[in-house]
């Protein structure tokens, strides 16, 4: 009987070991990126660190993908940056959603507007201050391609303010003067999002 129990437990242990994936230990994506000296002022050091960053990005580190896309954008390579951002978003990286959203909303292709808005909204809802500020600013700016919506602007500016973005204070008073009821603007968020989607793409109404 004892032999049987010992034999069964060994079998269970072996089965368990076989099922667990010991070949891919949990990676610390943040540490991998932090260990690079991307602020180096020495051009040769900087280039070698960027090469390491690219390797990390290619090995599916979502933070490295975001940072590498950022480097490419600073160099003006928008086309090369977008695939890295898309891969990073697929891995759940909200900073990449924010950045790609801004790129889509600012480019000349009207087809990208809806996706840009959705990505920015996703990032802002996850709590990213830059996305909140951008949306808050954009909905009342003449130069922004998104439809004008003072209530959504107020909603995101107040969220950004609560989130510690002091720049929101520069605009929130002007925007609040444009809406009759600020409390109502906060309540009608979902309704306003649908309205904006409908205005960008009438097939979604």
């Amino acid at each position: 009987m004892n032999k049987c129990i010992v034999f069964t437990s060994i079998l269970i242990l072996l089965f368990g070991a076989g099922c667990s994936d010991s070949s891919t230990p949990n990676r610390d994506f943040s540490f991998e990126v932090q260990s690079l000296d991307l602020d180096s002022q020495d051009p040769s050091v900087y280039e070698s660190e960027v090469a390491k960053l690219k390797k990390l990005a290619d090995s599916d580190n979502p933070i490295a993908q975001y940072r590498y896309a950022d480097v490419l954008l600073h160099k003006g390579s928008v086309g090369d940056a977008i695939p890295y951002l898309q891969r990073s978003i697929a891995l759940g990286e909200q900073h990449s959603a924010e950045l790609l959203g801004i790129l889509y909303v600012r480019n000349d292709n009207k087809k990208d507007d809806l996706e840009g808005f959705e990505l920015l909204t996703q990032a802002a809802e996850s709590g990213l201050g830059t996305a909140q500020l951008y949306l808050g600013f954009c909905f009342t700016s003449d130069e922004c391609k998104l439809p004008q919506n003072a209530e959504l602007s107020y909603y995101w500016l107040s969220k950004a303010k609560d989130n510690g973005a002091a720049e929101a204070n520069l605009f929130i008073d002007d925007v609040s003067e444009q809406i009759p009821d600020t409390a109502l603007a906060m309540q009608r968020y979902d309704e306003n999002v649908k309205k904006v989607i409908c205005e960008i793409d009438s097939s979604k109404c």
Partner: peptide
């Protein structure tokens, strides 16, 4: 040299943030 003044002195910022700051 290649990367501009900011890169040389270490003021490399998030692209998204740079865009938002530009508008502000």
């Amino acid at each position: 040299t290649t990367a501009g003044l900011a890169m040389a002195v270490g003021v490399v910022v998030q692209y998204a943030r740079a865009v938002v700051l530009f508008e502000i």
